[in-house]
Design a protein around this nucleic acid. Structure first.
Lengths: 347, 347
DNA sequence: ATCGTCAATGGAAGCGCTATCATTGTCGTT
DNA sequence: AACGACAATGATAGCGCTTCCATTGACGAT
């Protein structure tokens, strides 16, 4: 039975013309029924609709886009889908773009520049109405392509002085400074940083963190792994840290996943949090507030960034390309203190 | 300066013709340089390449696809990107399809049938070479569209007797039965199930779980929430469970995220795992083995499922539509026991 | 009765590319 | 010297749709 299904499948997909013929009208009329039904009499409108549904007609977006020079597509490149951060961002984009009649084309660069460049090329081949890329470290080739694309380009998550077009993000450098200051204010003095330098933004935070330590006369202490951030990696990095530096009293993790893994490892080793070591994460993913102990984290406005990005893009598209006053928007961040850094003051 | 960048942007994107003109050749030759360079003399090949790069030429995939009737695109619909399960699956698809010259178009149905149908329609509009959809509960409309698409269709994650075309997954029903049996064998007798019925597969597992309990004369005990699965939800569901049924001695969670949240909540309430309550999750996400206590989980072959799916699709496409012998492939599952169910035997 | 107006439809051209076939020129062969 | 074979290039015709403009007929205004 299923076999029959397959063999009876039409070899040629039904087109506008097929529908037109079946409805006894011209192709133009069918096209109009789909896009501007108010211009077509009700009689024909119904006849066309019936014919279309009988034939299981699905308009060919490729042809439509080619003819109209309108793809109603937004190209997005993110470095990871595993990381909850980008899901929140994408979710916001969806929520604004879909109702506006746009469709998202999302490609994953897996944290490598070459992939990002390839992804950008691929997306541009689809002629999106706008491009949204993560970070500000595109390759020269990618930059050039984006500059020549003739569509709005938004670089997100991070700030730069030389944006390609629009830049919406937060200062990773300030976040790095703030994190160290926060832990010091809580009385910590032997502070370590766990990170995965695959992410360019994590590297920027690390640099700021180290610089701040050096400027205070402290010895920078960073444990890094080239693997992508994950919960198991957090456990590993913490183990490595404790082995080499059993005297740490605070750990800042470059991602909440690392923090969670590190917390598990502490639990396993009988290290008490925050009594023995204070812990802080980054991004404030949803599990931070629910973990036990709850994890202090640097909250980033991922959802808001997505909304803002989408709104600005729509404004530009609808305003026939006019850019807003501010090309560079700082969305800020906020440290949410929870139990993992609430050490009882020393007697 | 940036302003200038914008204003000097070309209004019309460069086309094959532009490159041809600049290189002093015909459009056909440019097209050939891009697709079948061995057919073009080296002189022209270089001249064309230079012209293309000078103009920042990006081929228009829409036009190319329209003309060649080949999009080299695979359409994929998943219900969620937040859930690690689908990332592993997508990751496998990427790893097989990209090197084969195909590009993935991924849409998110957010666990609703209407969205799924819309996503399928949208993807079909892009004329993919194959469609991969999650689950087996497509709406009649979606089913019809897929049947008429004239391309291979794979339903994944779950098994059915009536596949649209190809079906690769695992039996959620068997998983439900197995989970209960596993816990009973470990001596648990008051067993609860925490779940989020947004996911059709979770519902199927629940039904099997309940049925198995009933058939053993036990009273089914399920706490559900209509919100999507998440770590915080796990904590909430556990709280609700304990309030109503303080006597439970085992909990099976429909996802590892729920299990993690529930574990945190136990920790917070001083409930010992596994001494007081045994815990089991589903999917075996990477944090299960690293959590403390490590979480017993039903491991699903997500990555392998993705690989298998991609391989079969490629086979069909390359074999000019010939389907494999087996239309329905059971990838199985496996319970990985860890500390969260390793209760010391009663004295 | 004649005109302009307007709603409702259709015809034709073309979006940027590729498939197909035709055309050129260069060989080696007899 | 004439031929076919073949490599290298170009001309042409679409792919399925939309845009633009032309056509038709019904209607109210003069």
């Amino acid at each position: 039975m299923t076999d029959k299904d397959i063999s009876t499948r039409p070899r040629r997909r039904t087109t506008l013309g097929d529908v037109a013929q079946r409805a006894g009208v011209s192709a133009v009329t069918v096209s109009r029924v789909l896009r501007e039904p108010h211009l077509v009499s009700e009689t024909l409108r119904e006849r066309v609709a019936t014919a279309a549904s009988d034939l299981g007609y699905v308009p060919n977006r490729l042809a439509s886009a080619l003819a109209s020079a309108q793809t109603n597509t937004i190209g997005v490149v993110v470095p990871s889908l595993t990381n909850g951060v980008f899901n929140d961002f994408l979710s916001a984009l969806h929520n604004v773009f879909l109702p506006a009649g746009f469709q998202l084309l999302v490609l994953n660069s897996r944290y490598t520049d070459a992939n990002e460049e390839k992804a950008i090329a691929t997306l541009l081949g689809h002629h999106p109405e706008a491009m949204i890329v993560t970070g500000v470290d595109q390759t020269p080739g990618a930059r050039r392509m984006l500059q020549h694309a003739g569509v709005p380009v938004v670089q997100v998550m991070e700030l730069t002085d030389r944006p390609i077009d629009i830049n919406i993000g937060l200062s990773q450098v300030e976040a790095g400074h703030a994190a160290l200051r926060f832990l010091m204010e809580r009385g910590c003095c032997r502070i370590a940083h766990l990170m995965a330098p695959l992410d360019a933004r994590a590297v920027r935070r690390r640099e700021a963190f180290e610089q701040e330590m050096v400027s205070r006369g402290m010895e920078p202490l960073v444990i890094a792994s080239t693997r992508p951030t994950s919960v198991p990696l957090g456990a590993e990095l913490l183990a490595a840290l404790i082995e080499r530096h059993p005297d740490v009293d605070a750990v800042w993790c470059s991602s909440d996943n690392l923090a969670l893994g590190a917390l598990f490892e502490c639990d396993r080793r009988g290290i008490r949090v925050p009594e023995d070591i204070s812990f802080m994460g980054f991004n404030d993913l949803e599990f931070c507030s629910i973990a036990h102990p709850a994890i202090t984290s640097v909250a980033t406005p991922r959802y808001e960034m997505g909304e803002r990005t989408a709104e600005i893009v729509l404004e530009i598209i609808r305003g026939s390309g006019k850019r807003p006053e501010e090309r560079r928007i700082d969305m800020g961040f906020e440290i949410r203190e929870r139990d993992s850094t609430r050490k009882a003051p020393r007697p």
